[in-house]
Design a protein around this nucleic acid. Sequence first.
DNA 1: TCGAGTTATTTGCATTTGCAAATACATTAG
DNA 2: CTAATGTATTTGCAAATGCAAATAACTCGA
Lengths: 151, 151
Amino acid sequence: MLDLDDYLPYLLNRAGSRIARAFTRELRAHGITLPIWRVLAALQHRDRQSVSQLADSTAIDISTLSRILDQSERRGLAARARGVASDARSIELRLTPAGRALARRITPTALNYERTALAGLSPAEERQLKRLLVRVHANMAGLSGKGARGA
Amino acid sequence: MLDLDDYLPYLLNRAGSRIARAFTRELRAHGITLPIWRVLAALQHRDRQSVSQLADSTAIDISTLSRILDQSERRGLAARARGVASDARSIELRLTPAGRALARRITPTALNYERTALAGLSPAEERQLKRLLVRVHANMAGLSGKGARGA
DNA sequence: TCGAGTTATTTGCATTTGCAAATACATTAG
DNA sequence: CTAATGTATTTGCAAATGCAAATAACTCGA
C-alpha cells in the first residue's frame, strides 16, 4: 500500500497548495487573483508570448487562460494583438505599462513568500530543490499533452 | 524583476500541475476523479480520519471536500459515521471494502507515474527532493490557515 | 440546566474550471 | 483557386471551487 509521506505527487501537491493558498490571500490586497498574477509574472519574465506558449509556461489550461486574459485585458493589465506575429492565427500578448508596474509592486512580496517557504534550507539545498523540480517537470513533458497515454 | 526559472512557487506549481493533469487522465479509466483518488489514498494511508484532518492532509478546501465525500459515499467508496469519535461534532471517515479495493488497484499506476516523474534521479536525489518538499510544506504551516497575515 | 461562546461540518451562491465544439486563420494538394 | 486538412484561440456548458453563512454539537460558567 502507498506510503503517502514518501510519495512525490502527494508531497508536491501539498507544498504547492499551501504556498498557493497563502499567496492568493496576499494578492487580494493588490486586487488580483493568483491566475492573473501568474500571467503578469510570466509576461514580465518573457513578453510577447502567444496564448499557447503562456498556457504552457503557466500550467493554466488554454481555455481557462483565454478567460483570464479577458479579465487582464479588462483591467488594463495585458493586451492581445492579432496578426503581429508571422502567423496570424496566434496572438501576441503583452503587458501594459500598468500591468508591468503592478508586477513590479508585487514582486517583493512574492520573493518574501519564497524566502518563507525556503526558510532553514542552505543555499545548496535550495539550488538542489529547484534543479530537481525542473527535472521532474521535464520528465512529465510528454505525458501532459492531450492524447497522452499511460506511463 | 522576478526570474521565474529560479522561483520556487512557479517551479512547484509547474511540476505539480503536470503530474496532476497526466494522472487525472489516467484515473478516467478507473472511473474516478483526482480529488476522489486523493481521498482514497489518504484514507488508505490512515483510516478513520475526521473531515478536517482529511482536508488538511489532502490540501483540499474543507467545503469542497465535504462534497467530494458526498460523491465518494454515493459511489460506495467511503463512509461517514457521526458520533463514533469521542466528540460527536467530528465525523469519522472510513474506506469501504470497495474503496479499499479500488485504491489497491490504482496504486501500481500511481507508483508508475511517480517513477516516470523521478526518472533519471539517483536514489539520493530522490530522497533529498522529498525531504526538502516536506520542509517547505512545514515552513508554510502557519500561513495557510484562515486568518493568516502576510510574511 | 440554560445560555453564551466554540469548534466541526455542511450548504448557498457566485465564480472558475476544463472538456468538447466552434471559429479564425494557414497550408497543401489537386 | 478551391477543397480539405491542420493549428491557434475562443465559447458553450456542466461540473467543481471557495468563501461566507447556516447548522450541529460541545464546553463551561452561573
